[in-house]
């Protein structure tokens, strides 16, 4: 199958395919980081994670319209404002949901699954009622569009680079929060022993609310970034949720590094195989491999070794 191409063409194809894989990797990382906090650290199965992302996307859509109507001079930088607003909107909704629903269900993880699934249906209908059933596209500032020519044959899309930079930045920020801040310490203490965390003086209720809010806020930022790649519809969140859980579970719940490693291996496997096979075949093979590995290693790729 390679005989039709010259060596330099092949090289270009591999380079661009590899880069496409890196973009997919960044998308996975962005999707999974919020869930790595909520599911990995808090143990909450949040089926509405995709809808929190879509909220971020709709916030971006609104922001872009507001900027193009009222502040056209600043349109080129609206995206940064939109991401901050997306974080705040999704984070606040997350904290409200935690207060109203999740906090009553910490001892009943399976009920959380049902409750958050119900929440995802409610949110989808809300989006449909407010924004309409049709998908909306966001006008992207010109500087993000187009691509950067590296050589004559290799071009890399600028929005891809933007997503990659964002993924790296947010991963670093979450790592620092999780392992260097006192909030991170409290979250990890609660994750290991909720009762004892309270008995050493940690306000578990407030920390839980904040943590859930931060996880949802990160999902909102991811949703905001995805408006550059695809269009936004009321049910678009459903497309992401399976991959997101796959990445977090495969990486080993509770390990940030595991989440990143798993996002990398799944995305690279998928994008390389997609070039040789059909898209659905690539997906099937990736899923089968992940299922196989999880059967041998149910705790995921990265799990702590400790004396029990």
């Amino acid at each position: 199958m390679f005989s039709d191409y010259s060596m330099s063409e092949l090289g270009a194809i591999f380079a661009m395919q590899g880069f496409a894989g890196l973009i997919l990797f960044s998308v996975f990382v962005l999707m999974a980081l919020g869930l790595a906090i909520i599911f990995g650290q808090m143990g909450v199965i949040n089926m509405a994670h995709g809808e929190f992302m879509i909220l971020g996307a709709y916030v971006t859509y609104i922001t872009s319209n507001v900027f193009s109507d009222y502040l056209p001079a600043l349109f080129s930088i609206y995206f940064f404002v939109a991401m901050v607003l997306a974080f705040i909107a999704s984070g606040l909704l997350g904290m409200a949901v935690e207060w109203a629903m999740i906090r009553h269900l910490y001892k009943r993880p399976l009920d959380t699954l049902l409750a958050t699934w119900g929440l995802s249906l409610i949110l989808q209908q809300v989006y449909r009622s407010v924004f309409g059933a049709r998908e909306v596209g966001v006008t992207i500032p010109d500087w993000i569009m187009g691509s950067l020519p590296v050589t004559d044959m290799i071009e890399v899309p600028i929005n891809g680079i933007f997503v990659m930079v964002l993924a790296v930045g947010i991963s670093a920020a979450i790592y620092i929060l999780m392992y260097r801040s006192s909030w991170g310490k409290q979250v990890r203490a609660i994750n290991q022993n909720r009762v004892m965390a309270g008995a050493v003086g940690i306000n578990t209720e407030w920390t839980d609310r904040l943590t859930f809010g931060i996880g949802c806020g990160v999902a909102g930022v991811a949703g905001s970034a995805f408006t550059m790649i695809g269009s936004t519809g009321p049910t678009a969140g459903q497309l992401y949720i399976v991959d997101t859980f796959l990445v977090v579970v495969f990486g080993g719940a509770g390990s940030l590094l595991g989440t990143i490693a798993s996002a990398f291996s799944i995305s690279q496997a998928q994008s390389i195989m997609e070039f040789f096979l059909s898209g659905s075949m690539a997906k099937v093979l990736t899923l089968l491999t992940v299922v196989g590995i999880l059967m041998l290693r149910p705790q995921g790729l990265f799990a702590l070794k400790l004396r029990k």
Binding site: S182, K185, Q186, V200, R307
Partner: peptide, 26 residues
């Protein structure tokens, strides 16, 4: 009031220093 429970219940996945630091919260 401070509490040392039966079975110690330290946070086993956290470092010794982090464990002590959780007590500093209040």
């Amino acid at each position: 009031v401070a509490y040392v429970p039966q079975g110690r219940m330290i946070f086993s996945a956290m470092t010794v220093q982090e464990n002590v630091e959780t007590g500093l919260t209040v």
